Amino acid sequence: TGEEYIAVGDSTAQQVGDLTFKKGEILLVIEKKPDGWWIAKDAKGNEGLVPRTYLEPYS
């Protein structure tokens, strides 16, 4: 379980453990880390770190 967020920009994984996503994708945020990198899952079930500045709450 988690909260749904929509990507407001494209982000390409810079290192192992990062999640690549495109603008408009809905991501499920699993954990919000205080350093600004959140753990999220995409629609295909891929999981990784995403920069919170690229996400907005999805409603």
Rank of each mutant, 00 (worst) to 15 (best):
N46V: 07
E4F: 15
G36N: 05
I26E: 01
D18N: 14
K41P: 00
I6P: 01
I6H: 03
L28D: 02
V8A: 06
A40S: 03
K44S: 12
D35Y: 04
W38Y: 06
V16C: 10
K41F: 07
E56T: 10
D18M: 15
D35T: 07
T20W: 08
R52H: 15
G36C: 04
G24P: 00
K22V: 09
G2T: 08
A40L: 04
Y5F: 09
R52I: 11
D18L: 15
K32Y: 05
K33R: 14
I26M: 06
E25V: 04
D18H: 15
T12P: 13
A7S: 06
W37G: 06
G9R: 15
K41Q: 10
A43V: 09
P51I: 09
A7V: 06
V50T: 03
T12V: 14
I39P: 01
Y54R: 08
I6V: 09
G17M: 05
T53E: 15
W38D: 01
K22Q: 08
I30F: 08
T53F: 11
K41C: 08
E3V: 09
E31F: 13
A7D: 01
E3L: 09
T1K: 12
P34K: 10
D10Q: 05
G36R: 02
T12I: 13
Q15G: 14
L28F: 11
I39H: 07
A43F: 09
F21G: 01
V29C: 01
E25N: 06
V29N: 00
I39Y: 12
I39K: 08
G45F: 03
G48E: 01
D42R: 00
K33W: 07
I26Y: 04
E47D: 05
L55W: 01
G17Q: 06
A40N: 00
V8H: 05
I30G: 02
F21S: 00
E56V: 13
K44P: 02
E3A: 08
L27N: 00
K44I: 08
G45R: 02
G48P: 01
L27P: 00
G17W: 07
D35W: 03
D42M: 01
V29F: 00
G48S: 02
E31M: 12
K33N: 11
Y58S: 07
K41A: 06
L28M: 10
Y58C: 06
K32R: 07
K23H: 05
D10S: 09
R52K: 14
V29M: 02
D42P: 01
K32D: 02
L55Y: 01
D18C: 15
N46T: 07
P34E: 13
Y54V: 09
E4C: 13
T53W: 15
G48I: 04
Q14W: 12
E31G: 08
S11D: 03
K23R: 10
I39V: 13
K23V: 07
N46R: 08
I26S: 03
E47L: 14
V16D: 12
A7G: 03
Y54P: 02
L49D: 04
N46L: 07
G9K: 15
P34Y: 09
Q15A: 12
Y58H: 09
S11N: 13
L27W: 01
A40V: 14
